[in-house]
Amino acid sequence: MEKIQNQKAWFLVLPALAVLFIFSAVIPLMTVVNYSVQDIFGQDYANAFFVGTEWFRDTIRDPELQAAFGRQLAFSVITLLIQIPLGVAIALAMPTRGIMVSVALVLVSLPLLIPWNVVGTGWLLFTRPDIGLLGVALNELGLDYNIQRNPVDAWLTVLVMDVWHWTSLTVLLAYAGLRAIPGAYYQAARVDGASRWAIFRYVELPRMRGVLLIAILLRFMDSFKLYAEPFVLTGGGPGTTTTFLSQYLATIGVGQFDLGRAAAFSLVYFLFILALSWLFYTVITRMDRE
């Protein structure tokens, strides 16, 4: 749609900006910038002194942070590699007609509507070796499954939990993409003698490209914010095996009140997300134009 040039439109945007500026984004972010270049002892803000980029150097060299970042990246990539194909497969299997459509949609959406910490709680209840269905079942099968003790178990459980929690997003997006394909495409493909695979490869996948890009970018970014679920399920352990970026940040920030380090870390973290957002935005605006 051709838009009208009108600077007065700013007035319409103003209330939203005011809220975000003051309470949510800009002023708080400025505080972070401010802390990131100062050394503050305890909470004695008056005697803070300027330390330049020292915190940033510290942050980047911090081996624990590097480890957390590595874990985070590995986690995000793996969970995406599972969720996207699985989500597409489920979307392809979803019913297309009748009341079952609504029932399946609602069931699939359920995990998305549960508070994130409750997702952790639910999985804690589900996987405990003494009272959890999965925990008990696996131990009955002779596996020594215990997420409090065994890092591999903890890691895999957090991964499965994330798949449980978020695959539905890909399912819903891919399903919407599939529903938007006109019937003529399928009819033509059938007349052309295309196999089921060829229909998927040449009709469905290209037409889902847009929604899948959105799904990948959103899931990648959101998985970088992962916090509450592993916090409740494993507390980041055993050791630090399931401590991801947000939890590490929360630990040094609110936990240890290490303001400078937390602030520098926040900014690096934020810039990383910013770069991803930029990618997302570029893709979206290009799609909107098409």
Binding site: A184, R190, D192, G193
Partner: peptide
């Protein structure tokens, strides 16, 4: 099914 029938079909909108 159509794929076995050896029929070609052209639709209203380009596919």
């Amino acid at each position: 099914p159509p794929e076995k029938r050896n029929i070609a079909q052209v639709f209203q909108f380009p596919v």
